[in-house]
Amino acid sequence: MTTHPLPQDSINAYWTGRAPEYDDYQQRPERRDHDRAAWAEIFGAVLPPAPAEVLDLGTGSGYVALLLAGLGHDVTATDLSEGMLARAREHAARAERAPRFLQGDAVAPDFADASFDAITNRYLMWTLREPERALANWRRVLRPGGVLALVDSTWFPTGLDRDTSADFVELYDDGVRALLPLAAATSIDATRDVVAAAGFEDVSVTPLQSILELDRRFGVAPDHEVQLQFLITARRGRD
């Protein structure tokens, strides 16, 4: 009998296969310091003062988690891709202040209620199954008044068929795509709206001009286009 992987298993396999190339691109020496300064300013402006307890979901190779730990926060970071986590842990072994990297599902983070002062993620929302369920859980594990700060864009406004790489076509098949309601969003408003619908307060969207300028200056990854990215922030109410 032929068995088929679960959709999330296919997503995990894709990102594990991409991990070395993805991580190497983020560490390009000609851009590394510029990126660090830009992202530190972006997250530093919206997160609580350090040291805050931060949960970075869908951490990938740990870029944001390591950045925030370097800024003095106590960071726990999760991902389901073993390949990405392996890269993240390699970086952590060399860091003066390292996050705690765990294997875990961003949709259902396995933490007690009101465990964190802030939740972050970057480039997760487009490939997130069950975003409504995920956001309800994120709100649950945030402390009253806690901050949600996520970054994403509309990467596939004309549909996921734009990416014709063999591994993407194979692993982001029709079954996977059907479970990712934000993957082909044509406006960042779709992501903003799902955050607001989950009961978060003070939801705002900020275009990230500094990252756009860096992308124009240094270029983007192969098979990608220069696109404006957005920071969405919100708070859990003090109910």
Rank of each mutant, 00 (worst) to 15 (best):
A178T: 12
I11N: 02
P48V: 12
D113Y: 07
V169Y: 07
D113C: 00
L135I: 09
R216L: 10
P5D: 09
P109W: 03
E96A: 09
R32F: 14
E21A: 05
V205H: 12
E201A: 13
T164I: 04
R36W: 08
A114T: 11
L231W: 09
I232W: 10
G104N: 06
Y123H: 04
G17D: 03
P207Q: 03
D56I: 00
T158E: 15
S115F: 05
A183N: 06
A178G: 07
R217Y: 12
D33P: 01
V169S: 08
R122V: 07
D239E: 14
N12A: 15
P181N: 02
M84A: 04
L71Q: 15
R122L: 08
H4P: 01
P157N: 03
V194G: 08
R122D: 00
T120G: 04
I188L: 15
A108V: 14
Q103M: 09
A92C: 06
D163K: 11
V75Q: 00
A45N: 15
Q26V: 01
T127M: 05
D173G: 14
D117M: 01
P48F: 11
A114N: 13
P181H: 07
I188H: 14
G62N: 07
Q229R: 11
Q227E: 08
A234D: 10
P29C: 12
L66G: 13
W155C: 05
A13F: 00
F200V: 05
W155T: 13
L47P: 09
P48I: 03
D24T: 14
P222D: 13
R192C: 12
E53T: 10
V46C: 04
R100H: 11
F200K: 06
R18L: 00
Q8R: 10
A45I: 10
R31V: 06
L150G: 03
G62Y: 02
P20G: 09
L128W: 06
A38F: 09
G104I: 03
A196W: 07
T158Q: 15
Y14D: 00
G146A: 12
T76G: 11
A92T: 00
P29I: 11
P49V: 05
L128M: 14
P131R: 02
D193T: 02
S81Y: 00
D167F: 03
A106Y: 11
G146M: 10
